[in-house]
Design a protein around this nucleic acid. Structure first.
Lengths: 349, 349
DNA sequence: CTGAAAGCGCTAACAA
DNA sequence: TTGTTAGCGCTTTCAG
């Protein structure tokens, strides 16, 4: 039968000091005699005092702001899943006196990213969450954050440096490795196709490079004889895609295995649906609504998903832990599970 | 630029009423004139008032208790994973003024379960979480809970009735279906083995029955010609297991596919490891440490896991939502994702 | 039906 | 170096 929790009042009474002094030692504030300090510490040990966080928050009555810097996106695109995580975090944040803001930019326009960074710096937030889309610009940005002592957390992928507070994302290389494992299902393959996005990139970092490496390494290790074809499509010219694929697969009738390393496997499902008899084995990434649809109707064999919403939730959580409790994350690099979705388990995610 | 949050004080001022009255309408307490009620409601709408939960909790200064009734277990067994979820919930609960208790019983001893139930009832908890291990006894127990108006949440599996607050668990039938899908990988099969536990059950409900149904249905729908062998082993006589399996597989050399519907696939890995050349395809359930080990070394092909820790976390969350916020769960039956673990993604779970 | 006032546990500004 | 005091936003008596 544990009686009521002990409070600073109890400690004050027990030590013969005042609440004020107890508070001072609790927070390691200066201006406390060694004697008083020791006395308070002892009683704390004895009674097993635990502060009432919310009374503390109430009394502090502080407002802070965390901002998430993200590519803006259309409905159904990858970043929308991250937005969901932000939405989920609103509640717990606001009860901790933290407000959550998103700042968006155009992922294909580096200038818009620069503008977004400037805006964020002007907001003087207490913490920042971001995926490092433009490598060099991100370095510039986080250096400024560091100078202002604003902690930041990477999601989705990370840039090596010692200044980030934490990272939450998929183990990217391994996700490519896993992709190959699922695609081949340990059956020996002679050929496989990798569908790639043809994009002009203006200094963007491309996380799918790592993933592709993982994939290729798996193939080289397990099926060294397997020939990997790269097929390029352009998402901005959707009407051309089917033609490109028809052409490729006509020329390579032996190819029955298809992988794609970004979230846009939905771009090729129109083609796939025209050739059900081919029974292509198709593995893609990320649980976008359009991808899930094709998974369920059997066009896509499997998707590897990475819980982008959880990434956001945890990134924000790491920051609020730091801001409110002063608690550093226990791990800097936090790899999310890679969920394997098939038509028979997709609907439960 | 949003100014500070609006508080009941603001509302009191705006309506010309007192904080007390505002509080009364906020909580639908009786004794408020229609006029005052309407006035307050209007201002609330206008200003978009949101209560400060923690100020409220602070003022209420109430203590409540949630108890989880679970089979006690050895290290490495299934229920230990649930315990982890309970541990995870401790923090958030205690900050909401809720204390969490576990009460254990012997899952093979119905008397111990009865005793546990009695103990729980004597504790007069504010809420209860439990897996329905003994069907009839559970009905008896939850009836008593209902009589005392103590809300309860099922985890792991559920019993049909209208009195449970919520259920968090795997979609059990579908997990069997999924298991068959993974086991066959859409390759036509002639034979497969189902390894089953031979147990004297004393009124225990067996959730694997449903799972087996799902499995069998998948097989009947997709590979009607496939012969399914049942092989029984006894976990209490581990030394016999290898012999039984040797015998069975000697007699059925065509069987290369093995499924098991409970969490104890680790029981057969000793046998499997003796026959790596057979390349058995083996699918089991649950991310026990021993199972994961065999997954990683390639003995087991895949595991289907159900996040038992999350089940506990969410069950407890549903209860605290009710107790603290008065919020009913948005869904009663909550199916957890079925995670497909392979040797290449297991370590990230 | 309503208002006033005390207090939840903690913080912070001001005195001493 | 320490104590006192006035809140933070809300609940809960107790009067009226």
């Amino acid at each position: 039968m544990e009686s009521k929790k002990t409070t600073i009042k109890d400690i004050a009474r027990m030590t013969g000091l005042s609440k004020g002094t107890v508070d001072r030692v609790l927070h390691n504030r200066e201006g406390v005699s060694k004697k008083s300090y020791a006395k308070v510490m002892e009683v704390i040990k004895d009674l097993g005092y635990e502060p009432n966080l919310y009374a503390s928050l109430l009394a502090q009555n502080k407002k802070r702001e965390i901002v998430v810097v993200l590519p803006g996106c259309e409905k159904g695109e990858f970043w929308e899943l991250v937005e969901k995580g932000i939405a989920k975090s609103q509640d717990s944040c606001s009860s901790l006196g933290i407000s959550l803001q998103s700042v968006h930019y155009d992922q294909y326009d580096i200038e818009s990213f620069r503008a977004a960074c400037k805006k964020v710096l002007d907001m003087e937030p207490a913490g920042v969450v971001l995926p490092p889309m433009f490598k060099n610009e991100t370095f510039v940005f986080v250096d400024k954050l560091k100078a202002k002592e604003i902690p930041f957390v990477y999601i989705d992928s990370k840039l090596e440096s010692d200044s980030y507070l934490a990272y939450f994302g998929m183990p990217i290389y391994q996700s490519g490795y896993l992709c190959a494992h699922i695609l081949t299902d340990e059956q020996n393959l002679k050929e496989a196709a990798i569908i790639r996005i043809q994009r002009d990139k203006h200094g963007q970092s491309d996380p799918t490079i790592n993933r592709r490496e993982g994939f290729i390494d798996y193939m080289t290790e397990h099926f060294p004889g397997c020939e990997l074809h790269n097929v390029f499509i352009n998402p901005n010219k959707p009407k051309e895609i089917d033609g490109i694929l028809e052409h490729f697969f006509a020329e390579h009738p032996g190819v029955r295995h298809i992988a794609m390393f970004n979230s846009r496997i939905y771009l090729i499902t129109s083609f796939l649906e025209k050739h059900p008899e081919k029974k292509y084995r198709v593995v893609g990434f990320d649980n976008l609504a359009a991808n899930i649809k094709s998974l369920k109707n059997g066009t896509v064999t499997a998707l590897i998903a990475q819980r982008p919403d959880d990434q956001a939730v945890k990134a924000i959580g790491a920051l609020s832990d730091l801001l409110v409790f002063g608690r550093e994350p226990s791990k800097r690099d936090n790899f999310m599970p890679m969920d394997i979705l098939t038509r028979f388990n997709a609907e439960y995610y």
